[in-house]
Design a binder for these strands. Structure first.
Lengths: 201, 201
DNA sequence: GTCTATATTCCGATAGAC
DNA sequence: GTCTATCGGAATATAGAC
């Protein structure tokens, strides 16, 4: 807790930490106040309600993750390069924010309709160009036939799931935190390789 | 709500539905009472507290999913057949209980220590045999070298994640509920194929 | 802006009639 | 066993002093 940071900034950092680790329903305003080193009343002074505070955190958080998808998927890159860039960058990001995927998935399930509008207000992921590249690679007999949606699911699953299922995986595979971290680092290269091997003849 | 089902049974069904869709923290005893068609007091009559009721639901739920892992992974099957059996059976099960993965992942993250003890009290997943088969296949140059833990992550990710990330995937890939269901059916065969193709030379 | 104290609402749990 | 009514605590939110 640095003294020179503004109170509002400290609240936002504290709220992000608490909301992401406990979820909206599990988070307590007292937890956030303690984490920020202030009292509850100040939270309401800066942000009217818990709902408002949550909304700020939520939108700010996902806005740091969405735009880069479009940058990668619409760049002048081959489908292989896009897979490599996506896996590498997003696994890297999630390593730095390991609780974020479960948080986002939870809130997406709870607020399906209005969430979508706010999350991608004019900022929907645009995968058409990538999908066309895949379809062309299929027609050119470069890769096996696959529904583009299945491929997208596989990419997201392989990048995101290990962080959501970490406890399950640690139990099933018998690995500790350090080993888990090393495996995640390795996945930045392993995931695109795995996918490309599955696709090509 | 069938009249001839016992009150305890109705409560358990209602609690399962509410807990799985809202999580422990988000679920209300009133919600469960309404869903079961009774009042709150009866919940406490049958199960002392919310915690106790949740524990019953949680253990009963996962116990229907864990043992089958050991059955498959220790059967007299090749590593390919085990992958096919696991993917097919678990995707099938999750299609019938689509909200269950997110529920289980959430509660695993919240109760890491005691969760593990209860979840696998003498019933840990035993993947040693499968792991040895993979290592032997690697040594025999049948498949590419891969850390067994990475393979296990990939299998679980490809089977489980689509249900957790459904809203995200529907947004990214632009698919509706009916199309999503069809894709999940297709995955029972697609996932093992995808993995095997990625593994073999 | 920041605090203490308090109001208000919500929710799990219990008491007691039937 | 099942209900209504209510308690008691916890959590969000507000009032008001400084």
């Amino acid at each position: 807790m640095l003294k020179d940071r503004s109170t509002e900034e400290r609240i936002l950092d504290a709220a992000k930490k608490v909301f992401i680790s406990k979820g909206m329903a599990g988070a307590r305003m007292q937890d956030i106040a303690d984490e920020a080193g202030i009292n509850k009343a100040l939270l309401h002074y800066y942000f009217r309600s818990k709902d408002k505070l949550f909304e700020v955190i939520f939108l700010e958080t996902i806005s740091r993750f969405v735009p880069r998808i479009n940058e990668i998927m619409n760049a002048q890159l081959s489908w292989k390069e896009k897979l490599e860039a996506f896996a590498s960058e997003y696994i890297e990001k999630i390593i730095a924010n390991p609780f974020l995927p479960l948080f986002v998935m939870n809130e997406m399930h709870k607020q399906p309709e209005e969430f979508l509008k706010k999350m991608w207000g004019g900022d929907r992921p645009r995968l058409e160009k990538f999908i066309m590249q895949i379809q062309q690679a299929i027609e050119a007999k470069e890769i096996r036939p696959i529904h583009p949606a299945q491929l997208i699911m596989n990419v997201m699953a392989l990048c995101i799931f290990p962080f959501i299922g970490k406890p399950l995986l640690q139990m099933a595979a018998g690995i500790n935190d350090k080993e888990f971290f090393n495996l995640m680092e390795e996945r930045k290269k392993l995931v695109p390789e795995f996918i490309i091997q599955a696709l090509i003849f």
